[in-house]
Design a protein around this nucleic acid. Structure first.
Lengths: 331, 331
DNA sequence: ACAGTGTCTGAAACGGTTTGCAGAGTTGGT
DNA sequence: ACCAACTCTGCAAACCGTTTCAGACACTGT
């Protein structure tokens, strides 16, 4: 059916070993033979069977990626980064959508384990103990979480919060709401630590609300609570929530940014497409995906497990303004 | 390292064949033995090695999915459907992001071929000849394209256009613009055929504009052209474009839906989150992904290759209104 | 004549599973 | 008591396409 190394060998009138070497150790075969083999392989459309190669080399050339939800733009961006980097390294990616279910996460790790060289776990929802149980099944890299002494790629969202709070403080806001996401997420904790450090330093009082689901609906729900607390600015857990906030504010007749400033998180594509482009903290999602794969690929010797921190960046657009704007004369 | 069938066999004090059978042909092993085996397997955390199983059965339990761009919400929704259905069938999905490049598509099909039971090609960009060359490498199912006699799952966007045109016609619009997407896409052609059939039937004149990139920017670009042609409604290739149109119309001071109606396509999540929720034709993206996997799984005998058509549905929201609205008295 | 080098070949892994065949044990009919 | 049929289990081969080890062969230089 499919063309194997044997077909190529027969057609090129050499042994299978020679064909194999023509691909993997070119300098061990005569240039002329090599040329011939490569040409025949090309003609026949030969592509090495990675599974069979993995059988003897122990490396499959596949890397696994587990995300809580592919349809979430945050994760699809991460995934894109993983896929791109994997391709560059001539690897293929195994995807699993865990549907936000910790048990499914553990399960798919098991299912993929033997067919991949390593697995990237994106924002895993399971607790430390469950995570520990996964260690050893396959080389693991965490993304957006630090735990179990595993290598991880992290985004410095604490610094992102600092930038956002500083920005709002400079605009004269003295009382802002922070809408937190899922209760027990590492990213959420880290974010909150950043907030608690930054707020006093910027002479800003932070009203901590939540947890809310990190969705459009979550933002809607949170908005009324924020309004009731008399804040002049809102810091949302992510852009999806921020957009929900924007919508609810419009519905309640609160003008943005005049009466209320709104800051999101992530900088998903959508955030520059809203009628009021959103001020947000850009998370390097694609870069994080790439880095995670890098870590997996490098991870030859299990030395001291390293963490890679990626910087975040406040992107100021149209949803933040001075607390008491001076009226614009012309317009 | 990893726990194999042999470990389980030793621990349960049976042979490997018995363990194997306990999983795959339960009725051939004594209930008591079976229970013991299953229990030990559970304790040891045994998970069958799918690659090894595939070695002898010829089925890997993996299915491949190739998309032009994971970060595109249309495809991430399709992907989610594929992943969900695959999981139900206890399969794992291999993902390849072709980065909109036809050559990459062909390449990854080759790379995945031996490790999967079949491949779902989503909106493949390559031409028929290239596609033909892929047939036979692995079982293929096309999504959002019909070609090369391959089984395919298709969405009836022609009927979607009909619904949209009918809707606009009923609202009194007589001259509408259609903004087409990528020039040579199957979906685009199909869409256009629907338009040309529906417009006369609804007494509507359709101004065909494009092709434009199927993005936010594409929508912005298209808007000015549409305005110059004096239409009162716009039918965009997809929601991303429609949102671009909405933005540009706002920037040009054209009020929606009073002065201009806008209809999108796909019904991505974002379209209900815009400040003006978008009227759009819902494409069953997730269902399409599921169906594609179904087709692959069923495709035991290569009988007459079938196509599965999925219905589309107009979702009327806030961006369409009568051409000459009667002023609302109260409010 | 022999060691050394460059190039190639044959055949043995690689690995965890499934499965054909045979054998052990049990039941039931004569 | 004996044979047949049946149920359950174990042994070992086969599965796949590749890599790689050990060696063969033909040269060259000494």
């Amino acid at each position: 059916m499919a063309v194997t190394i044997h077909h190529v060998a027969r057609a090129a009138e050499v042994s299978v070993s020679t064909v194999s070497r023509a691909f993997t150790v070119p300098e061990m075969v005569h240039p002329q033979t090599r040329r011939k083999v490569l040409q025949v392989a090309e003609e026949l459309g030969y592509q090495p069977n990675r599974a069979a190669r993995g059988l003897v080399t122990g490396r499959t050339g596949n890397i696994g990626v587990v995300v809580p939800d592919v349809a979430n733009p945050f994760f699809s961006a991460v995934l894109k980064g993983c896929a791109a980097r994997a391709r560059e390294a001539r690897h293929v990616v195994f995807l699993a959508d865990a549907a936000e279910d910790p048990r499914v996460e553990a399960e798919v790790v098991g299912a993929m384990a033997k067919q991949v060289d390593g697995i990237v776990l994106c924002s895993p929802r399971e607790d430390s103990a469950q995570l520990d149980r996964l260690v050893g099944i396959a080389p693991l890299v965490l993304l957006n979480r630090a735990d179990s002494g595993l290598p991880a790629v992290l985004m410095d969202s604490a610094d992102g919060v600092r930038q956002a709070v500083e920005h709002l403080g400079a605009l004269g806001h003295r009382r802002i709401a922070h809408l937190s996401g899922p209760a027990s997420s590492w990213a959420g904790e880290h974010r909150l630590r950043g907030l608690r450090a930054a707020a006093p330093a910027c002479d800003v009082e932070a009203v901590e609300l939540g947890p809310f689901p990190p969705t459009f609906q979550g933002g809607i729900q949170a908005t009324d609570l924020a309004l009731a607390r008399g804040v002049t600015a809102v810091l949302a857990f992510n852009d999806l929530m921020a957009i929900g906030v924007l919508n609810r504010l419009a519905a309640r007749g609160v003008s943005v940014p005049e009466e209320m400033s709104v800051v999101g998180f992530d900088d998903i594509e959508m955030s520059s497409m809203t009628t009021q482009p959103l001020t947000t903290v850009r998370m390097p999602m694609e870069a994080a995906g790439r880095t995670a794969v890098d870590l997996l690929l490098d991870e030859q010797q299990p030395g001291p497990q390293l963490q890679r921190w990626l910087p975040t960046q406040l992107i100021v657009r149209s949803t933040t303004a001075p607390r008491m704007p001076v009226p614009v004369a012309t317009r």
